[in-house]
């Protein structure tokens, strides 16, 4: 069947799921906001507002004046990446394992189309949808906090969220497909349970990645997240000073697409041979 059929089918299914997944998205938005505000709140309770502002400016090397509102807005914007990572990596990995090893829906898909087509299309669509849906709360919060300027900030961030969502989805395919079809993992929540917090902690998200302990950074560098965090942090506090980071992200993105295409194709062969 053609890629258009697969595209249409997955869009239909995801929109149907979306309706039922609303509590999960609300929970994700709530938790991500809580994380962002907790970090600021905890640091502020010990250092006071002026101490926090000073430390913040020093860490991000900001020369101009920074207000508490700026810091909160930045933390909320970064929390979008947290929500996005949790959603993309969590859902894509869980859906792949759940479909193949728990509810046995793989037969329905394998008798209708090519599996590599299905997986590649699914990752693209999910990344795209998640880039919007899982970060929508950031728009709401920024508009509440900053008014129309908040909406402008969100629209600036949105392309970065969407591209990150797609890259993370392909990254998850690369990690999950071998675990599903070779290791035959059945606990569909296990990958997301460990990988998501490790990636988020390792990428810094709220702090520059250089301040993250090395053992965590090493793991997160397998994903596109550290690059994205740096891009987002630079976008937020100053004009992009190191365009090389864009180049690195593009290279990483291309590698994930190439790798996930190869692994999806291998998965197809493996499944059809009944291994």
């Amino acid at each position: 069947m053609s890629i258009v059929s697969v595209f249409r089918a997955i869009i239909y299914r995801e929109l149907r799921f979306l309706k039922r997944m609303m509590p999960e998205y609300m929970s994700l938005a709530f938790q991500s906001t809580l994380f962002a505000l907790s970090i600021i709140g905890i640091a502020m309770s010990v250092s006071g507002v002026s101490g926090l502002v000073a430390k913040f400016s020093q860490i991000f090397n900001i020369s101009g004046k920074v207000s508490l509102t700026d810091i909160i807005a930045a933390a909320l914007a970064f929390s979008g990446l947290l929500s996005l990572t949790a959603d993309c990596v969590g859902s894509v990995s869980q859906v792949i394992i759940y479909e193949a090893n728990v509810i046995d829906i793989l037969h329905l898909i394998a008798q209708s189309t090519y599996l590599y087509l299905y997986y590649m299309t699914y990752a693209l669509i999910y990344g795209l949808l998640s880039g919007i849906v899982s970060t929508l709360y950031v728009l709401v919060l920024l508009v509440v906090g900053l008014g129309a300027y908040g909406a402008y900030v969100y629209l600036m961030l949105l392309p970065a969220y969407i591209v990150t969502g797609i890259a993370l989805s392909y990254y998850t395919l690369v990690v999950t497909l071998p675990l599903t079809y070779i290791v035959k993992m059945r606990r569909y929540w296990a990958i997301s349970q460990v990988l998501v917090p490790v990636l988020i902690a390792g990428s810094g998200i709220f702090i520059p990645v250089s301040l993250v302990p090395l053992f965590l950074r090493v793991i997160s560098y397998t994903s596109p997240l550290p690059e994205v965090c740096t891009i987002l942090q630079e976008m937020f506090f100053k004009a992009i000073q190191s365009p090389i980071i864009f180049l690195m992200f593009t290279a990483v993105f291309v590698i994930y697409i190439a790798l996930s295409t190869y692994i999806s194709y291998k998965t197809e062969k493996l499944v059809r041979r009944g291994l």
């Binding site: 994380f35 905890i42 640091a43 000073a54 430390k55 947290l82 917090p197 902690a201 702090i207 965590l216």
Partner: peptide, 12 residues
Amino acid sequence: VVIFGSAVVFSK
């Protein structure tokens, strides 16, 4: 660690 690691970094 996502919360406390970051909070520690931002704190004096």
